[in-house]
Nucleic acid binder design. Structure first.
Ligand SMILES: [Zn+2]
Ligand SMILES: [Zn+2]
Ligand SMILES: [Zn+2]
Ligand SMILES: [Zn+2]
Lengths: 160, 160
DNA sequence: CGGTGAACGTTATTTCGTAACATGGTGGCC
DNA sequence: GGCCACCATGTTACGAAATAACGTTCACCG
C-alpha cells in the first residue's frame, strides 16, 4: 500500500494447514456454546481472513470465495462479515475499508489497530481506553463500542 | 441515525450569520499565515460544514454546494475536503463516511469523537492518547495519526 | 510578459455496500 | 411424520462513495 517504501503488503502472515484447521475448529466450538451457527459461507470467509497476509477488502474476499475461482455474490460475503464481526471473530478497519481476523484471544473486547502506511500491515493490540471512557462519561455519553486506528510505520518499515 | 429513538438528526447545531462569517474569516487568517489559500470551493465546503447541524456526507455537500441548487462535481468537494482535513479545519468520521468541522480551538490535534447512534450527533473531544501511544511505542510503531470513534448514546437520547 | 506549479472543471469509471424478494434448511410442536 | 416459524442463503439489481485521467485556468515569480 505504501508509497514510501518497498516492503511487501501486510507483514502479518496468515495461518495455514493444521493451524488453520484448528482455529476454525475453535471458532466452531465457540459458536456452538452460544447457539450460533458457523455455516459454510461464514466459515469460508473466516478461513480466507485467517489465511490472508493482511487486511482483506470485501471484494478481495468476494473474488477469492469460490474454491475454483468463481466469485461469491456481494451479499454472501457482507453477511458473513457482519456475523463474524458480531461474534468477535473479525474486525473491520474503517480507514482501510478492510477486514482482519481477530488476533486477541478470549471473547469480547474493544478493537484497536496499529496500521503501517508503508507495507499495509495491521496489528491488533489490547487498548487501554480508561482515559477516553472517562471523558465520554464526563460528557454524559453512554458508550457502546470504541475503535481506535493509529496510522504510522511498523518496525520493519522504519528500518527501511 | 437511530433506529432506537425519535430525536432529530445531529444534535450539534451549526453556526449562522455573523458567527459563520467570523469563523470563515478566522480560517482565512490561519491559511494566510501558512501560505495556504482558502479558495472559493474550499471556503464554500467549510461554510457548509460549519452551518450544518451534524456530520455531512460528501454527497450531501455535493448536492448543497451550488448557491441555487446546482450540485458540484464530486472531485470539487473531495478535493476541498482533503484540503480542509490537511489543515485541520475538518475531520472525516470513518465509521459514518461523513465529515464535520473541527470544534477544537487551536492548531493540530488528534481527533476523537463521541457519536450518538440514536440522533446522529457527533461530538469532538480532546482525547488523552497517552496509554495507546505507549502501547504503540512498545510495539515499535512510529505513529503519525490516531483517530478514535466511540459509538453510543448522547445525554439527550439517554433521557428518551 | 512568459514560465511554473497549484488548483480547478469535466467526463467517465471504479469501488464499496445494500434493498428486495425468492428459495432452502433446521428445529419445535402437534 | 407433517406442519409451521425462523433463520440463513441465493440472486438480481441498484445506490452510494470515491477516484482516474486530462485539459484548462489562475496566481505568483522572475
Ligand atoms: Zn480482536
Ligand atoms: Zn510496514
Ligand atoms: Zn478537531
Ligand atoms: Zn442522541
Amino acid at each position: 500500500m505504501g508509497t514510501e517504501c518497498h516492503h511487501a503488503d501486510g507483514a502479518h502472515p496468515g495461518i495455514k494447514g493444521h493451524a488453520l484447521t484448528h482455529a476454525l475448529g475453535a471458532a466452531e466450538t465457540r459458536c456452538a456454546a452460544t447457539q450460533e451457527r458457523l455455516t459454510a459461507p461464514r466459515r469460508r470467509v473466516l478461513e480466507l481472513l485467517l489465511g490472508a497476509d493482511g487486511p482483506q477488502k470485501a471484494y478481495d474476499l468476494i473474488a477469492a470465495f469460490g474454491e475454483h475461482g468463481e466469485p461469491a455474490k456481494p451479499p454472501t460475503v457482507y453477511r458473513a462479515l457482519e456475523f463474524l464481526e458480531r461474534l468477535g471473530f473479525a474486525h473491520r478497519i474503517e480507514s482501510l475499508n478492510a477486514y482482519v481476523p481477530c488476533r486477541i484471544d478470549g471473547t469480547e473486547h474493544r478493537a484497536a489497530f496499529l496500521i503501517c502506511d508503508c507495507c499495509g500491515a495491521a496489528e491488533e493490540f489490547e487498548p487501554d481506553f480508561t482515559a477516553q471512557l472517562k471523558a465520554a462519561e464526563a460528557a454524559g455519553y453512554e458508550v457502546a463500542t470504541i475503535t481506535l486506528e493509529a496510522r504510522g510505520r511498523c518496525p520493519a518499515c522504519r528500518a527501511d
